[in-house]
Design a protein around this nucleic acid. Sequence first.
DNA 1: AAGGCGGGGTC
DNA 2: GACCCAGCCTT
Length: 354
Amino acid sequence: MASGSFATRLLQWFSEHGRHDLPWQHPRTPYRVWVSEVMLQQTQVSTVIPYFQRFLQRFPDLYSLAGAEQDEVLALWAGLGYYARGRNLHKAAQLMAQNGIPEDQAGWAALPGIGPSTAAAIIAQAYNQPAVILDGNVKRVMARHAGVDTPLEHKSTLDQLWAAARERACDQHPADYTQAIMDLGASVCRRSQPECERCPVAEDCYARLHHLQQDLPVRVRKKALPERNRVFLWLENPQGEVLLEQRPPSGIWGGLYSLPVVMTADEIECSAQKWGLQLAAQPQRISHFGHRFTHFKLNAEVHYAPVSSSSAVSESQIRFVDPHDLADPEISIALPKPLSRLFQQTYADKAKLL
DNA sequence: AAGGCGGGGTC
DNA sequence: GACCCAGCCTT
C-alpha cells in the first residue's frame, strides 16, 4: 500500500528535490508570477529564465509594462514564439492598471492570455490559495498515474485528467503543491525515459504497474504538415541598411518585423516599386532556411538586391535598419527566431572574412 | 525530422 | 462546443 496520500508524498519529495530557486519565486508577487506563467505557456523553464530576467529588468512592475509601447514589449518577447502571448500580456497589463489586479481565479481568467490552468497557477503560486492546474506536465503525470488511456485530443480525456488532478490535489501548501506537480512532470515523469525509481508516487502509478510509461499519454497520429514556399527579400540601400516590414497585428509573427515576403521571385521587382524603390541590380538568391509552424512548414529562400536610395519611404510599416544592429543580442527590434538567426549568421560569416 | 505544448478567435 | 490558428526547443 502507498505510504501516505499522493499529495503528502509529492510535497515530501518537493521539499528535497523540487526547484525553490526560480527567479519568479523571489520575490513571489502576483505580477512576477503572472508574467512567468504566461511565458511558461508552451515553453520550458530553462528557455524562459533569461527572457524573464530581461523582461523584469525593463518592466519591473505592472505600470511600467502598461505604459510601454507594444513594439518594445514584443522586442523583449522576440524569440519566445506565440507572439499573441506578448500582445495579450501587454493588453492585460493595461486593463489591470485601469481596473486593478483581480482578486480571484475567475477575475484572472477573464484577462486576455489567461485560461483556466494559468489562472489556477497564479492563484496557487501568488496567493497560496488552493487551485487545480492542468498544464502539459500535469496531464502527463495524471495520464500515467491514473491510467487515462484515451487520446489527449478528446474532450472526455481532458475531463478525466481534470478530475484526476482534482482528486489528487490537497488544500495544504497550494503554492508548493502546484510547483511540485509541475517539477515532477518536468524532471522525473518525463515524456521519454521517466525515472520511476526516483518518483514519490510510483508505487501506485497505473502506468508503472502495467509497464505503460512509454504508451501514456495517448495521442492521435498527426497528419503530414503542408508546405509553403516563400521568398524573403533582402533589399539593401546604398548605406548598407536592410528593409524591414512590420507584420500585420495578428497572424504569423504578428506585430514583429521581418524581411518583406513574396510568393515567388518574379514578384520582387514589382514589390520593390510598391515601396518606391528601384533595384540597382538583378536579385540574387543568397540563402535559404526552413521553419516549422504548428500547421505548415515554411521553405524560405532569401533573395538579395541592392536598391537605389528611395524617394520616400514614408509608410510606417517599413523601415531601413543597419543589419549589424540586428545581429546584436541586445536588439531592440522584434524579429522572429529564423530571421534573427539569419542576420546573426550573415554577420558572423562577414566577421570571419575580415 | 518529428514530438510537445495553453489560449484566443470564429462560426 | 467544435474547429482553426500559432513558433519555439528537445529528442
